[in-house]
Simulated assay, not measured.
Amino acid sequence: MEYQNITLSIPREVLRRAKHMAIERGVSLSGLLTQMLEEMTRREDEYQKSKEYHIAMLSELDLGTHGNTSWTRSDLHVRQ
């Protein structure tokens, strides 16, 4: 994996706490941030894959309307 240096501007208190978290986990601050970003991007990839799967499932669902409805929203919510 190729690495690239970046510059971050982080609030001092957040940085202090993040350094403590890194020490507690036995990793560098850079390692901690890398782990967190990897987890975030992995979750995003899984979400997108799941979303695409479910949209494909919905497109195959046949409700017998052929994309047309014979009712309006107010028809479905008739108050008596």
Rank of each mutant, 00 (worst) to 15 (best):
M1E: 12
M1L: 11
E2I: 08
Y3G: 09
Y3V: 14
Q4W: 04
Q4E: 15
N5Q: 15
N5A: 15
N5G: 14
I6N: 10
I6Q: 12
I6S: 12
I6W: 07
L8M: 10
L8S: 04
S9N: 10
S9A: 08
S9P: 02
S9D: 06
I10Q: 04
I10A: 06
R12D: 15
E13M: 08
E13S: 11
L15M: 10
L15P: 02
R16D: 13
R17A: 08
R17C: 07
R17S: 08
A18G: 03
A18P: 02
A18M: 09
K19E: 10
K19N: 05
M21Y: 06
M21V: 08
M21H: 07
M21D: 10
M21S: 09
A22G: 01
A22E: 02
A22P: 01
A22L: 01
A22K: 00
I23M: 03
E24Q: 04
E24K: 04
E24W: 00
E24N: 03
R25N: 02
R25T: 02
G26N: 00
V27Y: 00
V27K: 00
L29P: 00
L29G: 01
G31S: 00
G31P: 01
G31M: 01
G31H: 01
L33R: 00
T34Y: 00
T34R: 02
T34M: 02
T34A: 05
M36Q: 06
M36V: 08
M36F: 04
M36Y: 02
M36L: 10
L37A: 11
L37Y: 01
L37N: 03
E38T: 04
E39I: 03
M40N: 04
M40C: 05
T41I: 06
R42Y: 04
R42D: 03
R43M: 07
R43G: 04
R43I: 06
E44G: 00
E44D: 08
E46Q: 05
E46D: 06
E46H: 04
Y47Q: 07
Y47P: 00
Q48T: 11
S50K: 14
S50R: 14
S50N: 13
K51E: 15
E52F: 11
E52I: 10
E52Q: 13
Y53S: 13
Y53H: 14
Y53C: 10
H54P: 02
H54D: 12
I55F: 14
I55L: 15
I55R: 15
A56P: 03
A56Y: 12
M57W: 13
L58F: 12
E60P: 07
E60V: 13
D62Q: 09
D62Y: 05
D62R: 11
L63F: 11
G64V: 04
G64L: 05
G64Q: 03
T65D: 08
T65H: 07
G67P: 03
G67W: 05
G67C: 05
T69N: 11
T69W: 15
W71K: 06
W71F: 15
T72D: 09
T72S: 14
T72Q: 09
T72R: 08
T72K: 09
R73H: 14
R73D: 15
R73G: 14
D75V: 07
D75T: 07
L76G: 08
L76D: 05
H77S: 12
H77W: 03
V78P: 05
V78L: 13
R79I: 14
R79T: 14
R79H: 08
Q80I: 12
Q80R: 10
Q80W: 08
